[in-house]
Design a protein around this nucleic acid. Structure first.
Lengths: 316, 316
DNA sequence: TTGTACGCGTTATCAC
DNA sequence: GTGATAACGCGTACAA
């Protein structure tokens, strides 16, 4: 195990100089810096976390708290955790995965949380670590996709395509992102020639399918679904009823992770830029950790419309 | 930050005694042990990894190397990593997520790897850490679902249900698990009255759908698919062709993670016991780490048949 | 610009 | 059965 002392000896300098080359390069003359760098390379030295952790009383470990039920949630989790882990690793941090806010948190520098509901706020407030949430959380720093913009893009797209009637299929939850998605839909003006209906359901393809099977769709209906799961249920119902997608019915989902490609037709959907979200979460958290003060700021990342096979520009 | 010294002072003993209470309780008298325990509880002391790491020259960090493309793979990854992380955490270990064997591994105690192909063996051999793989790897310790048993169960199930013709839809890859699944199918004798056909495809629902759309199925065909993704494509083709599932065609998938529930009909499938797999992987790795010698052993976990809506006991 | 001395929390060694 | 001491690798305060 090659340590900083080995490098120091090889470069004929003190340990401190080596440490400075690593942490405060500007304080070291270029000449010595070069010598030290060469020694580092030749010996294959890599900084050990334990020593640094002990000296700085930082653990270089971040807890990622996944509150959604992994087996039920849209499979964004695997992607998000992967990106988060990548960015953390680049900064020399480790990841510790938790699935409950009741865990005993210690030996960490900060917390990333995903899937926090309004009811979790008390527990989050009780924690003394810097926190960054995925999803709008007014009391904490958070990063979220621009949910409102997403459904605005979706509705606009359906109007442009030439669908004649609009349905918004929302989620039946009292959560911020749900409200925002609905707001986005409402924010785009519905042309006079179109009708518009709004439904709210649990986020389940089976529920969506059942709903659509129980109602009659006007010709050329365009559906804005608040999730790909709901969009999938909508599509299934169209199959059940022998309605042609995208020519009789147009469907736009929301999320753009996995489900949209697994569907019998690729879903047109609003894609969440998970990589950018992960990056922003890590950036925000690490800067809160090093600046030692929570900057309660909500960052919002714009989504993009991913064209699939469930919408098309209709002939006049 | 309450340290071992604080506990020692409060319990009127030396730091060493506290350390022994934590690590070698048998060397401490019950009386003193109780006193120390009380002090620990009252102060809310928790052992800090950094110090322990430094003293033991272990990092208490495990690298999990995910070689499958997260965005493409069946979403078992989120589940597996969650379980693995849980078990590691219980043992005081941290998780570090990697996605390539070309990363520079250091500052870790061992490696868990998922999705390793035959072509990765050289790189794995070059690593000096204890390694446990998910999926059969003859040269390393590995944990895998009993793939052969899985397809045996699937075929047996279709025969019992009363389907008259069998199709095995395999994966077109030269990998151990693929071979095993095919072997399982072959291991169950096909009754004289049944025909049997074998296909091999890339693991893609679209490919499976296309294949089935291009062939004519005998009545009462039972399909054993080597993955839920292939099963899904098979089901889509049945929809395309207006064949009734499960009455005209029976389908059994393999994996039982997410996709089976997202399908228009819940898939009958062979469920991978991911929690048990994760547990075994962690157990095996940690014991290799503490015993300091790789025990190259292949563990195999039996899967179970999950009854869904794509098979049914047919009337005679 | 560079070096010395010390401390971070824990455990191993060795003495008692 | 228990305690004193040194050691692990690194960074900071301070001195030169």
């Amino acid at each position: 195990m090659v340590s900083i002392a080995d490098v120091a000896k090889k470069a004929h300098v003190s340990k401190m100089t080596v440490s400075r080359v690593l942490n405060h390069p500007e304080q070291v003359s270029t000449e010595i810096s070069d010598t030290v760098q060469r020694a580092i390379n030749e010996l294959g030295y890599v900084q050990q976390r334990a020593g640094r952790a002990l000296a700085t009383s930082r653990t270089y470990t971040i807890a990622f708290v996944m509150l959604d039920e992994v087996s039920n949630v849209d499979p964004y989790f695997g992607q998000l955790i992967t990106y988060v882990s990548d960015f953390l690793y680049q900064e020399g941090y480790n990841l510790e995965l938790h699935r409950s806010l009741d865990d005993h948190f210690h030996d960490i520098d900060g917390i990333l949380v995903s899937g926090a509901r309004a009811t979790d706020k008390a527990k989050l407030n009780a924690l003394t670590f810097p926190i960054v949430a995925y999803g709008n959380q007014s009391e904490f720093a958070s990063v979220d996709v621009d949910n409102k913009l997403g459904t605005m893009l979706a509705k606009q797209h359906l109007i442009m395509c030439g669908y004649q009637h609009l349905i918004y299929l929302g989620i039946d939850l009292n959560e911020q992102f749900v409200v925002e998605r609905l707001n986005g839909f409402k924010a785009i003006e519905t042309p006079d020639y179109m009708t518009e209906t709004i439904y709210q359901l649990p986020n389940s393809d089976k529920e969506a399918r059942q709903l659509f099977n129980s109602i009659t769709l006007p010709p050329l209906t365009g559906v804005v679904a608040a999730s790909d799961r709901l969009a999938l249920g909508t599509l299934y119902s169209c199959y059940d009823k022998r309605l042609a997608v995208p020519n009789d019915v147009g469907i736009v989902g929301f999320d753009g992770i996995f489900i949209n490609h697994l569907s019998p037709l690729d879903l047109t959907t609003i894609g969440q830029p998970l990589q950018k979200i992960a990056q922003k979460m890590v950036q925000t958290l690490l800067s809160a950790i090093s600046s030692n003060h929570q900057n309660i700021r909500q960052s919002v990342i714009p989504p993009t419309l991913l064209q699939g096979e469930t919408t098309t520009k209709l002939a006049d």
